[in-house]
Amino acid sequence: MKHLKYTAAALALLAGPALAQDTMVIGVSIPAATHGWAGGMNFHAQQAIDRLEEVYPELDFVLATASDPAKQVSDIEDMVATRGISALVVLPFESEPLTGPVASVADQGVWITVVDRGLSQEGIEDLYVAGDNPGFGRVSGEYMVDMMPDGGDIVVLRGIPTTIDNERVEGFEAAIEGSGINVLGMEHGNWNRDDSFTVMQDFLSRYPEIDAVWASDDDMAVGVLAAIEAAGREDIQFVLGGAGMKEMIQRVADGDSMVPADVTYPPAMIATAIEMTAVGMTSSTPVSGEMIIGSVLVTQENADGYYFPDSPF
């Protein structure tokens, strides 16, 4: 059913402004679901839109997913031109290329909500909803320190080389500094299961003794766990992923010793952003400002609260 909705949204985009006379239109522009986290984010965006359209009959939503920054800019231009949007919720594919176009939309008096990745120029957006990347790294690092108070040897898998990844790794490194935890090796697994499988296999060949792995992402944790299992290595005590993929949360809840915890970077932040924008459009409640959704450590005790069985992620 969801697929039909996407199509419907696309058709509505083409149908033009005739429908949108008395209702207010909120545009939502997000990257396409090319990896697990983005898939979850797409899911939450669609769910939030479905729910809010029922709650607020005077609101109409346009959702567009883009596979690259240029497509995202075109999407936004189309929304302004053909749907006359009053608010735009945007999760920028990349910060730099989107800054100019979003700023010009803001100049036309459109409410701007920026999600997750900030624009490169401050003060454009009315509302900023974001996860906390340095915090994500810090929480992960602190957990490592807690688990290995006497120090230990770990390997780290990084994501796609981006600011997000750099902030996380810097936060992590700051947290483990002086703890006796020694990072043997760090390679890019590109937030991809196959790549991380390969990288982990090679880490296992290279280091005969590894105490723990910071996979930094749940997709990568899947690949890492498969590689460890295949090699039959017993030295590794646990793997710490991140982002809150439902399969991983479930393993945490089940008390899997290899996956004792997870760190959230909730894709649901897009839902929060859309909802707050809707509130801001329909009421006089002040919603502008900045909202940082912190990264939370999920352990067996609190795992149930972070498990979304219907989400694809």
Binding site: A32, A38, G39, G40, D219, E247
Partner: peptide
């Protein structure tokens, strides 16, 4: 992407063990 609803298609856990020898 459509089949996986934007996410990941995962093999049933029981099957995974049965299939693993193939790799």
């Amino acid at each position: 992407t459509w089949l996986a609803d934007g996410g990941t298609l995962s093999l049933d856990f029981g099957l995974r063990t049965a299939l693993q020898p193939l790799y």
